[in-house]
Amino acid sequence: MSDLSKLDKIIDRWNADPEFVVEMFQDVQDQLGHIPRDALEKVSDRTGAPRGSLFHIATFYQAFSLQPRGENEIQVCMGTTCYALGAQRVLEALERELGIAPGETTPDGKFSLRKVRCLGCCAIGPVVAVNDEVVGTIRPSDVADFLTGLS
């Protein structure tokens, strides 16, 4: 059960206007790390937007997650430049070290791994962001030490 008063505050901030449900979801995700089912229902009840359409939105945009995410969220940029500079191998190294696939969270809840699109730092690709902090020119052989530094 998520904190319902927090939810109300978020929805109020956008005047419960159904044109701003994406913004509401973004705020919910920022505060709670994901979009819990009751949050989706509450947004639906208060804005009048049908649940099905909200579910569609929550799954259409890759930024939203219906499941809780790990303490550290590792985002691997898979934009075109980062790909050309070797991001695929960086991603594989992370998968191997963490033992999870993109979109998953480690069983201890410490790390989530996610593929994202261009982070706007292509000039220093390949780029990985940890909890929104960007690390540039990372190589597959750096990954093991990089993770040790985080935990």
Partner: peptide, 25 residues
Amino acid sequence: HRGAGAYVSGESSALMQALTGRPGE
């Protein structure tokens, strides 16, 4: 209007949808 990222949402008719709070398709 603060959008969420989806490549196709930059297309003009998709953007019109996204602006009204619908999925940007």
